[in-house]
Design a protein around this nucleic acid. Structure first.
Length: 630
DNA sequence: GACGCTTACGCCCTCTGCTGGAGCCTA
DNA sequence: ATAGGCTCCAGCAGAGGGCGTAAGCGTC
């Protein structure tokens, strides 16, 4: 048996060598006489060359095994390590020993060589060297899977590949299946050729018969103090011939007994070190100490380059990477992104793969990380947790509140100035919209209705139209009259044609303008009509025309009568509107300083933009229009 | 056992961009 | 009075940075 062990060591030593190169490449471990194959991707380099199992590498060199992978520089080689079940009980094994193993291995490799055909290694960046298990991807059967997805993907022979789409992740394959497995040895265990996924949580492990059985066995051994560290079942050798001690419950191996013993405790629930503050228990004193430090605020690891301090050295190390060294060892294979932490790269990769593992239970939304899902759930509860301390307005997100405070209550609010005009907006996004709407090039030019101007930009077109706005562009072809609006010109032209289309229904008198007809009707045919009266502030005498009242007032006393200003007229108008909004009944709007108006029915008030007492008064079109426009 | 380092998960934050409704202005 | 355009603004989600904490493992 010793001879056999030596031969086995020679055979499998290079595989362990691969493991030593780094778990990055996917370590290979043996389990109960079974070498569990791992797959890693790496650059086609000397390093990769060293990863080959001795016999496999030799066969490739000798051309005995067709290698489907290109060896061009810059490409990478996907290394498949076959799970080969070789049991001591096999007849050939007993008789042939190492020669039998060689033969079996070669047979398997030849048989499965065709499996490699559908595989194609996608071009990757150099980053793969940094952490291949995190950022490599392999295109397979015209689909792209992340390594994470491929971790437990069985690579079937071509005949099995047809059914791959139906069951990509099935673990119920035959023993002849090649497993792609990327260094997740902590999660995967092999037992008699059956690969099983270890439950993620302790609770799941308890409910998992396999894990329970393993734990029972382990527990019994710990209790009995008879861990079989020296038996052939859990003893291997590394590539230098040192004895490797193997955990019976998982794939862990170590040269150190103490390491193994410490590791073995991991499988038990024993946590003898309890926090006196929160009663949480820990396996080791170190863990407890770190934990207690979180209560006490003790942060012994201080950054030499800033004021930050941390509970653990790891935190300090990470902080230094983030803030000072800017070292980002985790690089994305798909883009230039790189990160300080592997978890960040993992999260980033999801933006490439579209993976959304966190689903909302109330709608179809799914997020790429837990925080976004949590944030999303607020939209279902209707909760607005963020309140403005100044105006008590509430918001769903902190960022929204921050923006609100800055722009509603802040001073020196930053504005985004349009580079093409004077417009400035609060948000960058709105500036983009502004630029898109008003300053983007328009293929078909906009034409001005009033001149020959054409414009390819909406903003320029708008500015141009404003130029036309105040000009009296409508000119009479029979006199010098000019006006701003076309409707004014229509009425003016009636002075030339003599047309009087507005006929009084009571007396058949004709008028050029509707306004004039209205005034006429009210004065002569409407008994309820009360004309506007301007009172003398001195004696109270009423006049129908303001000018007459002023003339009288000058003689009546020394009091100077001010004509209603444009502003007061505007106030009147506002007052009228406000009153109209407030109550429908008749209103009295009084300029208490200078003149008084009698109350008139609202209906009349509203209709009369211009109040003319007499169609005989020499009112021009322009006077009416000016008043109307006001 | 202590220590240092690494890994993994989680939480919170910021910045950013898109969307759609409200309000205002203009034609 | 009305429709359409524009800006303002809150809601919401994507992406990434930074740190807290627990745990595992190698080394001394």
């Amino acid at each position: 048996m010793d001879l056999l062990e030596a031969e086995l060591s020679e055979l499998f030593a290079p595989i362990k060598g691969a493991e030593n190169i780094g778990n990055k490449a996917g370590g290979s471990r043996e389990e109960n006489g079974v070498s569990q194959g791992n797959v890693g991707s790496c650059h086609y380099s000397d390093q990769a060359e060293n990863l080959y199992p001795l016999s496999f590498g030799r066969m490739l060199e000798e051309g005995e095994v067709p290698c489907p992978l290109s060896s061009r520089e810059g490409e990478k080689r996907l290394i498949l390590l076959k799970t080969v079940q070789l049991k001591m009980e096999e007849e050939g094994f007993q008789q042939g020993g190492p020669t039998y193993l060689q033969d079996r291995l070669q047979a398997v490799l030849s048989q499965e060589a065709s499996v490699l055909q559908p595989l194609e290694v996608a071009p990757q960046s150099n980053s793969i060297q940094g952490n291949p298990e995190e950022d490599s991807a392999v295109s397979f059967l015209e689909s792209v899977y992340t390594v994470h997805e491929m971790e437990m993907m069985p690579v079937n022979s071509p005949k099995e590949a047809q059914g791959l789409e139906e069951d990509k992740r099935s673990t119920e394959k035959t023993p002849e299946v090649l497993w792609i497995k990327i260094n997740r040895s902590k999660d995967i265990v092999a037992d008699d050729g059956k690969v099983q996924q270890l439950p993620a949580t302790e609770e799941e492990r308890i409910n998992n018969p396999f894990a329970v059985q393993a734990a029972k066995l382990l527990g019994a051994r710990i209790k009995a103090g008879s861990l079989l560290l020296h038996t052939p079942e859990n003893k291997d050798r590394d590539d230098e011939g040192n004895v490797l001690l193997r955990c019976d419950s998982c794939t862990f191996t170590s040269c150190s007994v103490s390491s193994l013993n410490r590791h073995v405790k991991k499988h038990s629930d024993e946590k003898p070190h309890m926090c006196h503050i929160c009663l949480k228990a820990f396996r080791t004193v170190s863990l407890l100490r770190n934990h207690v430090n979180t209560h006490t605020g003790t942060k012994p690891y201080k950054c030499s380059e800033c004021d930050m301090a941390f509970v653990t050295s790891g935190e300090l190390s990470r902080h230094r990477r983030y803030k000072h060294t800017l070292e980002k060892p985790f690089k994305c294979s798909f883009c230039n992104y790189c990160s300080v932490e592997a978890s960040k790269l993992k999260r980033h990769i999801r933006s490439h793969t579209g993976e959304r593992p966190y689903s909302c239970t109330l709608c179809a939304y799914a997020s790429r990380d837990t925080y976004k899902l949590k944030r999303h759930m607020v939209t279902h509860s209707g909760e607005k947790p963020f309140e403005c301390a100044i105006c008590k307005a509430r918001f769903t997100q902190a960022g929204t509140l921050k923006f609100h405070i800055l722009h509603k209550h802040g001073e020196n609010v930053p504005k985004h100035q349009c580079p093409r005009c004077n417009t400035s907006v609060a948000r960058k996004g709105d500036l983009s919209i502004h630029l898109r709407n008003l300053h983007s090039y328009i293929e078909v030019p906009l034409k001005c209705n009033y001149c020959d101007g054409t414009f390819h930009e909406r903003y320029a077109f708008r500015q141009h139209k404003k130029m036309h706005r105040n000009e009296k562009r409508f000119k009479c072809d029979q006199c010098n009259y000019a006006c701003k609006q076309e409707r004014h010109m229509v009425m003016h032209k009636r002075t030339h044609t003599g047309e009087k289309p507005f006929v009084c229904t009571a007396c058949s008198k004709c008028f050029r303008q509707k306004q004039l007809l209205t005034v006429h009707f009210k004065k002569y045919h409407d008994s309820t009509f009360k004309p506007r009266v301007y009172d003398c502030p001195k004696c109270g005498k009423g006049y129908s025309r303001w000018n007459n009242m002023r003339k009288h007032a000058e003689n009546c006393g020394k009091a100077r009568v001010a004509r209603p200003s444009k502003e007061s007229k505007r106030q009147q108008k506002d007052c009228k509107r406000a009153s109209h909004d407030a109550k429908p009944e008749a209103v009295t709007c009084v300029n208490s300083q200078h003149y008084t108006m009698y109350s008139i029915p609202v209906a009349t008030w509203e209709k009369e933009e211009v109040l003319l007492e007499d169609e005989e008064s020499r009112v021009t079109c322009e006077m009416i229009f000016n008043l109307m426009d006001k």
